[in-house]
């Protein structure tokens, strides 16, 4: 792994490599949710709960927590029973962030959550 990471651009790093069994489902089928850390905009704190969001967006929010410094910790489903799940961009715009403001929002995608294959929906692993 070190040898490969030495060949990658600074900041891009392979953390783990897991061999897969033949017939393992594709990553696209396993991706379930993503966790984000979103810093607040100056003088515009994020709400304490997602209640203000429209229902179709709110339904994709698995987790919503505002830290003491105003940072929002958010988990968004990547799938929706009714179709495609809303992106973080849609969430932020629903919270009143204009499109031209989006580059100013400091966001870290902390992890993507995968469903465990063939073991039912509730069990998940963090990738």
């Amino acid at each position: 792994m070190e040898a490969i990471n030495a060949l990658l651009p600074g900041g891009l790093e392979i953390l783990d490599a897991t061999p897969l069994l033949p017939g393992a489902p594709s990553l696209g089928k396993l991706a379930d949710a993503a966790r984000y850390r979103v810093a607040s905009l100056p003088e515009r704190p994020w709400p304490h709960d997602p209640g203000a969001l429209p229902p179709e967006i709110r339904s994709a929010v698995n987790r919503w927590k505002r830290d003491g410094d105003g940072t929002l910790r958010l988990e968004l489903a990547l799938r929706s029973p009714t179709g495609s799940a809303p992106s973080l961009k849609k969430v932020l715009m629903a919270l009143g962030v204009a499109e031209e403001e989006l580059p100013s929002v400091r966001i870290v995608r902390e992890s993507v959550l995968l469903r465990r294959p063939k073991s039912g929906a509730p069990s998940r692993s963090e990738g």
Binding site: L27, G28, P103, I107
Partner: peptide
């Protein structure tokens, strides 16, 4: 066109991702 590329969750340009899974098809 790979499924993962289509499903990659959006982050604004310049946002870091600390732990992302991917796999060559």
């Amino acid at each position: 066109g790979c499924p993962w590329a289509r499903r990659c969750p959006w982050v604004p340009k310049g946002s870091p991702s600390l732990s992302t899974s991917s796999a060559p098809p």
